[in-house]
C-alpha cells in the first residue's frame, strides 16, 4: 500500500485516497471547437514515467490535490495544492544494467 502525502494532512495510507485522473486538464470555454471539447472529455496521457495526477483524500480531509507520480515505480515525488505552482518533474534516472557484475 502506497504512502501518499496529502498537502493538508501529511503522509497517509493509500486506501484513504482516490486517484482522480490526469491533472491540469483545463475545462475549455463553451465556445471551443468540437475537437477541443473531445480532447478535454476523452484524451488523456498515460506514459511510462512521471505524471501529474489528481488525487482526493476522500477518507481524510476530502480535498482534491495534485501529485507528481512515477507510473512505473509508483514513487511520488511531489504533492501540491490546487492552484499552487507546478513543481518541476525530476529527470529520469538512467536505467543501468539490471544485474551488475562483480568478481
Amino acid at each position: 500500500m502506497l504512502l501518499v502525502t496529502c498537502p493538508y494532512c501529511g503522509p497517509r495510507p493509500e486506501i484513504e485516497f482516490r486517484q482522480a485522473g490526469e491533472a491540469h486538464i483545463a475545462r475549455p470555454a463553451i465556445t471551443c471547437s468540437d475537437d477541443e471539447w473531445a480532447d478535454f472529455l476523452y484524451m488523456r496521457d498515460n506514459h511510462k514515467g512521471y505524471m501529474r495526477e489528481r488525487w482526493r483524500h476522500v477518507a481524510g480531509c476530502g480535498r482534491f490535490f495534485n501529485v507528481v507520480r512515477h507510473t512505473v515505480t509508483d514513487k511520488f515525488v511531489a504533492s501540491y495544492k490546487v492552484g499552487e505552482e507546478k513543481p518541476a518533474i525530476p529527470a529520469e534516472a538512467a536505467a543501468g544494467p539490471r544485474v551488475e557484475i562483480v568478481r
Binding site: 544485474v99 551488475e100 557484475i101 568478481r103
Partner: peptide, 8 residues
Amino acid sequence: RGRLIYNE
C-alpha cells in the same frame, strides 16, 4: 524492486 549484483 532492489537491483541485483552477480558475483562471478
